[in-house]
């Protein structure tokens, strides 16, 4: 099952709809890395509204993906962590999801916009990108 990646100006939107198998997770990470470098995206919003139960494996996939995106210079925000998912993750211990989280995709885009603007550096050079 492929995870669709949508481009919106300088930001990429991804919505993880189902638990990813090992192979699908690797494929998704590879696709996202390619898209980030192709589009020179400055931000990535990963939405997990549809994920019902997040175990340590999926938490790791999300974290690893976020780290990769950051290495390529993109800001990352997770949106849509369901309240019961958040409770279970906290109960499991450790900071299982180590990425900024917001409630919904709209807030994710706002947050990315702010952090990209705050960097000034690269955002300013990319005046060909529009929201």
């Amino acid at each position: 099952m492929k995870v669709p990646i949508i481009r919106l100006g300088k930001v990429l939107l991804v919505s993880i709809q189902v638990d990813l198998t090992d192979a699908a997770a690797l494929q998704f990470q590879e696709d996202l890395i390619n898209r980030i470098s192709e589009t020179e995206a400055l931000g990535v919003a990963i939405d997990i509204t549809s994920l019902d139960v997040v175990d340590s494996y999926m938490a790791r996939v999300i974290n690893d993906t976020a780290s990769m995106a950051r290495l390529l210079g993109a800001e990352v925000v997770i949106s849509g962590v369901q309240p019961f998912v958040a409770l279970a993750l906290v109960e499991m211990g450790r900071e299982l999801i180590n990425v900024d989280c917001v409630f919904n995709l709209e807030q994710a885009l706002k947050k990315l916009e702010v952090s990209i603007a705050a960097r000034g550096d690269r955002g300013g050079n990319r005046d060909t990108y529009e929201w």
């Binding site: 790791r60 279970a88 109960e91 499991m92 450790r94």
Partner: peptide
């Protein structure tokens, strides 16, 4: 133990189950 894994995992599965 938190963080122990023989398969390069996060090692928080069993400790997590214990708490859940």
């Amino acid at each position: 133990e938190e963080g122990f894994s023989t398969a390069n995992g996060l090692g928080c599965g069993l400790p997590g189950v214990k708490r859940l």
